[in-house]
Amino acid sequence: MKTIQVSTTINGDATEFLCGPDESLLDVLRNRLGLTGVKEGCGTGDCGACSVTLDGRLVCSCLVLGAEAEGAQIGTVEGLAQGDRLHPLQQSFIDHAALQCGICTPGILVAAKALLDRNPDPTDTELRYWLAGNLCRCTGYDKIIHAVQAAARTMRETADAQG
């Protein structure tokens, strides 16, 4: 099968890659670009471990063709921290013991950030429904909810201080 040349932007960096016409964005990110922070848990859009943003929308990268990244802005877990400074969500997940095995963590961080970008002050219920597509089998979600809310508070306070 003919490969397709794709020009895209990943975590702010202009990136070009070749991919097969039937190759998922997940496979491109992991196998061609070395972004293995994006995890595969199911390959069918049922677990959220491969969550990335595509032009600001939260998507499962296993349900996106690599070719669809042409001209798009892709965001992955690798783009959350600024150098060695963790994103408040990342720091909060460590501080609040919101990860155990950690395999779902990248997808949940990307998903939670996508929510807080839209809604800086979600209710627990809004948060739980937003994250319903991100399976976690270790934590029972309790500490994840607490960690996201704590990060949201920090981010609101920072925004207030700057505003």
């Binding site: 969550s51 929308r57 998903a111 319903a132």
Partner: peptide, 9 residues
């Protein structure tokens, strides 16, 4: 239809 992720698509 599906999760937040699926809703985006």
């Amino acid at each position: 239809i599906g999760s937040t992720q699926v809703q985006g698509r």
